[in-house]
Amino acid sequence: MTDARLYEVRERLFIDAGATVAGAGQAMFEQLRALRSAVAAGAPLSSPTFHDAYHPYIASVWAYRVAVCDELEGQPLVPAVFGWHALDGKERCPLCNRDLAGTG
């Protein structure tokens, strides 16, 4: 994350963005760190451990996008725009859907 200069980008976000966008950006950053920790601990992509970190991260990415769209355009970005029920990706995730169907 340091090599990718994410800490620097986060600091610029705190300076340039409104409070809602900055807060959503910080939440996304924290979820990215949790996902990174799961991967660093060896969680394979198809594991429940990975998905327990991945889906909150994706939800935070979408929450950030929603906040930015609202701040810049004043238009809400809702899951229905994409034909989804939620923004966390679980309804489109083969592993999660297999588990929900009781075949996992």
Results as ranks from 00 to 15, higher is better:
Met1Asp: 08
Met1Arg: 15
Thr2Gln: 15
Thr2Val: 10
Asp3Asn: 13
Asp3Thr: 14
Ala4Thr: 11
Tyr7Asp: 14
Glu8Lys: 14
Glu8Gly: 11
Val9Leu: 00
Glu11Asn: 15
Arg12His: 06
Leu13Val: 15
Phe14Ala: 14
Ile15Ser: 08
Asp16Gln: 14
Ala17Gly: 02
Gly18Pro: 05
Ala19Ser: 15
Ala19Cys: 12
Thr20His: 12
Val21His: 02
Gly23Trp: 08
Gly23Val: 11
Ala24Asn: 06
Ala24Met: 06
Gly25Arg: 07
Gln26Ala: 08
Ala27Trp: 00
Met28His: 13
Phe29Ala: 13
Phe29Lys: 08
Gln31His: 14
Leu32Gly: 14
Arg33Trp: 00
Arg36Ile: 13
Ser37Pro: 00
Ala38Tyr: 07
Ala38Glu: 07
Ala41Val: 10
Ala41Asn: 14
Asp52Cys: 03
Ala53Arg: 15
Ala53Val: 06
Tyr54Arg: 12
His55Lys: 12
His55Tyr: 07
Tyr57Arg: 11
Tyr57Ser: 04
Ile58Asp: 07
Ile58Glu: 05
Ala59Gln: 06
Ala59Val: 08
Ser60Gln: 01
Val61Ile: 12
Tyr64Ile: 02
Val66Cys: 12
Ala67Pro: 03
Ala67Gln: 04
Val68Asp: 01
Leu72Trp: 01
Leu72Pro: 00
Gly74Trp: 01
Gly74Asp: 02
Gly74Ser: 01
Gln75Val: 10
Gln75Ser: 07
Pro76Gly: 04
Leu77Val: 04
Val78Asp: 03
Pro79Met: 03
Pro79Gln: 07
Ala80His: 01
Val81Phe: 11
Phe82Met: 12
Gly83Asn: 09
Gly83Arg: 06
Gly83Ile: 02
Trp84Ile: 00
Leu87Tyr: 06
Asp88Leu: 00
Gly89His: 07
Glu91Pro: 01
Leu95Asp: 02
Cys96Asn: 01
Cys96Thr: 05
Asn97Met: 06
Arg98Ile: 00
Asp99Leu: 15
Leu100Val: 02
Leu100Cys: 03
Leu100Ile: 04
Leu100Phe: 09
Ala101Glu: 01
Ala101Ser: 14
